[in-house]
Nucleic acid binder design. Structure first.
Lengths: 216, 216
DNA sequence: ACCTGAACACCGTTCAAGT
DNA sequence: ACCTGAACACCGTTCAAGT
């Protein structure tokens, strides 16, 4: 009986049983292919691996980004949850940095993802991938604002640099296997982000003043 | 007649008159196409614009990078000369930063060039483009070493971060039209590069106080 | 409704045939 | 020596025909 099944898909989408099956097969195949061969892998390969016609792939996912966004959905949610968690952390500056580090690791999972993300981030056409970017942006903005309010991050930094820095660090991580270079780069970036503290000449008060024990 | 003499020295190469003409047409056409449509433009388009068979393009430039490197040759030379010039400047740290800024502007001239450059930079296959990267690396290393010797740049910075930072800033410049974001990012990077000065005297900085995780 | 795969429009690369 | 362009092997996207 090809009647309607329960809402298994994204939200309240109702799919015929065979369509739902194909949908799931496509997502699974895409996951494998993206992991193995990068975010730019041939869509035909994905369809073939899912044992589905290429037209079916296009029916469910009109653009490559739609498919990518769906595959990334779970891991995206993890990063966003991490952002909310870190928002409660004791050290706003370090919490921001930690979140950036995790964002970098995440973005570097698939070859080509950093480019796709950054592209979606600045592109005017609203792809599904872009909505991920907006969510990242909001999470980063919250962490950044808190760290700035705590006086740990320079006040002139904006969230766009933070996100794009993370993407470019991920991009470098994709290009080179020299993991040390990425870490050194992040170290430089982080020092730059808190540079205001040092720039503001200040008396001796600035350095040892904030202790995590005093609430946060 | 078609007398072949000296070996394959790039500039002193002796070509039959028609071959030389085709070669020049190709470089000119490639220059226009790269400028107009980015570093990933169709090679067939370039050959067509040069009114030359596609096979002729391949004969002269076995890979896309070879063609790109040739087109970029002049501007590359300018950046390298600038590097030597800045090596004589009065302020080693600022001279390094100025050179990076110019490298970023240069790399951002063609869409896709930053990716090609960074790729060549870390790739093991020695393309012609990669030799450009080595030259940049050497120029950056000289400026960096001088600035570090002057105590203006943190001693733990390595040239690979400097070059890849420049490429990633250029990559961001390609992605977004928000020129301000690129400048703010460079500002953060530069502050991070001279952070050692501030870090050095302050032994009990906030970062060393609490450590959310392992790692040193 | 949904699926299929042939068809179309590309692009990169090679190579046998020409001059 | 050098040039040419047809030929081949891809890939993305659409759509008429099937169930």
């Amino acid at each position: 009986m090809p009647t309607l099944t329960s809402p298994k898909a994204k939200s309240s989408r109702l799919l015929r049983a065979d369509a739902q099956r194909n949908y799931d097969l496509l997502v699974a195949a895409a996951h494998s292919e993206f992991t193995a061969n990068g975010a730019g892998v041939s869509l035909e390969d994905i369809a073939r691996r899912a044992k589905v016609g290429i037209g079916t792939l296009y029916r469910h996912f009109p653009t490559r980004d739609d498919l990518l966004a769906k595959v990334l959905n779970d891991s995206t949610a993890v990063i966003l949850a991490r952002g909310r968690e870190l928002l409660q952390g004791p050290s706003p500056g370090e919490n921001l940095f930690q979140w950036i580090r995790e964002l970098v690791d995440y973005t570097a999972t698939y070859r080509g993802l950093s480019a796709a993300m950054a592209n979606g981030y600045v592109s005017e056409s609203a792809t599904r991938l872009c909505s991920n970017c907006d969510a990242f942006s909001a999470a980063g903005a919250a962490l950044l604002a808190r760290a700035q309010a705590a006086g740990e991050i320079r006040p002139d930094a904006q969230v766009v640099e933070v996100i794009l820095s993370a993407h470019s660090a991920a991009w470098i991580a994709e290009q080179t296997k020299d993991r040390g270079a990425v870490e050194r780069l992040l170290g430089i970036l982080f020092d730059g982000l808190r540079a205001a503290r040092a720039t503001k000449p200040a008396a001796g008060a600035a350095t040892g003043r904030r202790r995590p024990r005093a609430r946060a």
